[in-house]
Amino acid sequence: MSTRLLLVFVPDEDIPIARELARRCASRIWVRPAEGEMESLACVVQARYVERLVDALERELGERPGFCTIILPTEAVIPPLYETAATAHPRSGNDRPPSRLESFFSRDRLSTEEMYDDVEETVRIRYSFLFTVLISALIAGLGMRSGQTAIVIGAMVIAPFLGPSIGMAMAATIGDHRLGRRSSLALAFGAIACVTFMALIGRFITIDPTVPELLSRTRVNPADVVLALASGGAGVIAFSKGSSSSLIGVMIAVALVPPLAAAGLLFGSGHGHLALGALILFATNLVCINVAGILTFLFQGLAPRNWRVTAGTLMVWVLLLVALMGLTLPRFLA
């Protein structure tokens, strides 16, 4: 069973409160003195209760001087903890009990704090992010130009935009404007850099727009929308469980860099109409990732700070998807 080790540091006089809160969620608890007039509380918590305990600690002790909570993954616990009815911790107060669907989807997922920490590292605009975007675009562009699928897949695995796109979905779900702004800026910056760089490349090399690998990135079919929605949901599930190996398949299934690289090459070589089609494919994939991502996060029990904001944001993404499908449906039917 997935567990976490929580280290909680509080002033001496607050240790009874911390201990009582930990008893409601933790299976094993230890208390020891810390530096100064502080106490440290260590507890082993089943993954499904981490977020409940962290929220309770933050609510009750967040304003105390020196308060700090550290969440650590555990490789093993001996003797082991088994997930049974006997290990279940009932909710207290007016907390709404989770539905069966929420319990099923949220089992063994990372807490919101852990996911936030993971995604925050991917939305920082640094030279390493820009370098990764340009290298990924160059590999994808040259692979599409020569019709070599294996090279394009290599660029998909790099996937520099997967983190910002999942960050946008997570921000919309919990209503975190700061994370949403940073994710959007990182993705917009990377997308503009990608298209600009590949447009410059396209001016100096010969581009054949009829190459299947390149041409396929200029069209949006209904199957592409279904694939992007399914991949977006799978990506969020893999991300929320910390399954980095599962994310590789998602990167390949719904890639954002190849359409942008194709758009840049086609713009640079004078095929503006096809380049617009590639940008529409990129936008469709991005919108699908966010629609599926928000719904999946909600199914996993991520609590929005404001349901009206979350529902409104989801509706905007759905309307954008409908609009994009409206732009591409006539071409598909023709």
Score class of each variant (00 low, 15 high):
V287R: 14
A255T: 03
K241R: 13
M251P: 13
A263G: 06
A283I: 15
T284K: 05
I252H: 10
S246E: 11
V254D: 06
G235C: 09
L260H: 00
A263M: 13
S245F: 07
I289K: 15
H273K: 04
G235E: 05
G235H: 09
A278S: 15
L286G: 04
G242P: 11
P259V: 02
H271G: 05
L281G: 08
G270R: 13
G272V: 02
H271D: 06
G272F: 14
F239T: 15
A253E: 13
F267V: 00
K241M: 15
L276N: 02
K241L: 07
S243N: 14
I252V: 15
P258Y: 01
F267Y: 13
V287M: 09
L260W: 00
V250F: 02
V236K: 11
N285I: 14
L276M: 13
S269M: 03
S240G: 08
A238I: 08
L265Y: 12
A261K: 02
S245E: 12
L276I: 08
P258M: 02
S269F: 08
A283Y: 15
T284Y: 06
L276R: 01
A253G: 05
A275H: 01
L274S: 01
S243T: 09
A255C: 01
L279H: 02
A262S: 12
V236M: 13
L256F: 01
A234G: 14
L274M: 03
L281C: 04
L279T: 01
V257S: 11
F282I: 03
I252G: 03
K241C: 12
L266R: 10
I237D: 05
V254K: 09
N285D: 07
F282Q: 11
K241Y: 00
V254Q: 09
L279R: 12
K241V: 05
A253N: 12
F239A: 14
F282T: 11
G270Q: 03
I252K: 06
L279K: 11
V257G: 06
H271S: 09
L276F: 06
L274A: 11
I237T: 09
L265R: 11
L276P: 00
L260K: 00
A262D: 02
A263K: 15
N285M: 05
G268N: 08
L266C: 04
I252Q: 14
P258R: 04
